[in-house]
Design a protein around this nucleic acid. Structure first.
Length: 365
DNA sequence: TATGGAATCATCAT
DNA sequence: TCAGGGATGATTCCATA
C-alpha cells in the first residue's frame, strides 16, 4: 500500500498563543523574545506573528534589530511552561488522528509545535482521504484551541515536512509521489529539510545550487566532501527518498540549561551562582520525569563568542542536585584555569538519562 | 592495533 | 552584522585489551 505521512506545524505558535490570550494584540506586530537579562532588549527573537514578518522580522535575529525594523512592535518575553501546556493538548488532538498500529509507532512529536502522523492505514493509501484528514485536524484545532496550523502530506516524512511549509499560515499541501520531482528539483538546496547554512554554503562552493543539481551530483564526490553518512543522505534526500519511520520520542536524551552572565567575568562566584540556578532547573526537569543521569557537560562561551565544553561520565547513575553541582563545579574550575578570556555565558547539561531503578540505598533494606 | 565508550565539535532551527 | 537557548548526531580522542 502507498505510504502516507502527515506533518502538522502550528502557525507562529508562541506569538499566536499570546494573541489568543491578549485580544488587545490583534492586528499588531507581536514579537516573542528570549532575553538575556543584560540590558533592555539583549536577546533573540523566538517567534513573531505575520504582521511582524511584514517588516522583515524573523526568528533568530537579535531583538534590538527587530526593534529597529519595527519600533511599533509589541515585544513579549517567552512563557515556555505555558506554551508547553497548550502544546500538550494540541498534541493529544494530533495523536488521535494517527493510525492505531499494532507494530511500530504512528505518532512522533518533533518539537513543541510540530508532529508527524503515520496515516497510511486510516487512508488506505488514498491521498484525497489524507487531504480530508488534514482538514479535520485543522478544524478541530481551530474549534478547541482557537489556533491555526499548516499541514503537509506526502509519501514520507521528508516530503510531508517540506510540504507543510508551502502554504502558511493555515494551509494544507499534498505532494503525491508523481509530484515529488516537480516540487523538489527547482528548490534551492537550503530549502531541503536538514540542510542549514553551513551545508548550503559548502554545496554552493561545489557548484550545487538547486536540489536538481544535488540529485544529479556524483555520490562519490558528495561522500568525499561530507562523509559517508551525510553524503548518502544528501543524495537520497534530493531525490525525495526517505525511509525513516515515524517514531515515538520518549522525551529527550539530554536535558540542559544555558544562560548569560550579568556581565563578562572570570570570577568563580557569580559563575557558580548562575550554575547553581541552572542545575536547579535541570534537576527539576529530571525529577518530573523520574530519571537519573550519568554524564555532565559544562559549556562556556567567552566574550569573543568562542565556545568550550567539557564533560564527565559517572561510574553509576545519579539524580541529586548535589552530585550534579559537585561535578559541574569541578569541570568549571578546569575551564576557568584554562581560560584567559572572560566568560559571557555558561551552561550545564546532563545526559545518558535512564529510569531511576535499582538504586536502592541502605535504607531500603 | 582494533574497538567501544567518552569528549568535543558542528549543525539545525527557532 | 549581532550574538538566546536547546538538542542531536557525527567526528575525534583515548583507554583497554
Amino acid at each position: 500500500m502507498q505510504r502516507i505521512v502527515l506533518h502538522v506545524d502550528m502557525d507562529y505558535f508562541f506569538a499566536a498563543i499570546e494573541e489568543r490570550e491578549k485580544p488587545e494584540l490583534q492586528g499588531k506586530a507581536v514579537v516573542v523574545c528570549m532575553l538575556s537579562g543584560r540590558s533592555g532588549l539583549s536577546g533573540a527573537v523566538s517567534t513573531c506573528n505575520y504582521v511582524a514578518r511584514e517588516s522583515g522580522i524573523r526568528a533568530g535575529m537579535s531583538c534590538s534589530k527587530a526593534k529597529k525594523l519595527n519600533p511599533e512592535a509589541v515585544f513579549l518575553p517567552v512563557r515556555k511552561d505555558f506554551y508547553t501546556s497548550v502544546s500538550d493538548r494540541v498534541m493529544q488532538i494530533f495523536r488521535s488522528y494517527a493510525d492505531a498500529r499494532e507494530t511500530g509507532d504512528a505518532f512522533e512529536q518533533i518539537s513543541i509545535d510540530e508532529a508527524f502522523l503515520e496515516i497510511t492505514e486510516k487512508t488506505g493509501g488514498d491521498f484525497s482521504l489524507a487531504f480530508e484528514t488534514g482538514i479535520q485536524i485543522k478544524n478541530e484545532i481551530k474549534d478547541k484551541e482557537k489556533l491555526t496550523c499548516s499541514v503537509g502530506i506526502g509519501p514520507n516524512k521528508l516530503i510531508a515536512k517540506m510540504a507543510s511549509s508551502v502554504q502558511k499560515p493555515d494551509g494544507i499541501t499534498v505532494i503525491s509521489p508523481d509530484k515529488i520531482e516537480s516540487f523538489l528539483f527547482p528548490l534551492k538546496v537550503s530549502k531541503l529539510w536538514g540542510i542549514g547554512n553551513v551545508t548550503a554554503r559548502k554545496l554552493h562552493e561545489m557548484g550545487i545550487v538547486t536540489v536538481k543539481d544535488l540529485a544529479e551530483h556524483d555520490i562519490i564526490n558528495l561522500i568525499s566532501a561530507f562523509g559517508k553518512t551525510r553524503g548518502i543522505w544528501l543524495k537520497q534526500a534530493a531525490a525525495g527518498i526517505d525511509d525513516s519511520p515515524v517514531k515515538e520520542r520518549g522525551g529527550t536524551e539530554q536535558i540542559g540549561r544555558i544562560a548569560t552572565l550579568p556581565e563578562d567575568t572570570l570570577d568563580i562566584n557569580p559563575i557558580s551562582q548562575l550554575l547553581d540556578r541552572l542545575a536547579e532547573d535541570v534537576i527539576s526537569k529530571l525529577d518530573s520525569r523520574g530519571l537519573s543521569f550519568r554524564t555532565v557537560t559544562v559549556t562556556v562561551i567567552n566574550s569573543k563568542f568562542r565556545m568550550y565544553t567539557k564533560s564527565r561520565t559517572l561510574n553509576r547513575p545519579a539524580y541529586s542536585k548535589q552530585v550534579l553541582l559537585e561535578v559541574a563545579r569541578e569541570i568549571l574550575s578546569e575551564l576557568l584555569s584554562e581560560s584567559q578570556t572572560e566568560f559571557r555565558r555558561v551552561g550545564v547539561r546532563i545526559g545518558q538519562l535512564q529510569k531511576r531503578m535499582g538504586q536502592k540505598s541502605l535504607f531500603d533494606y
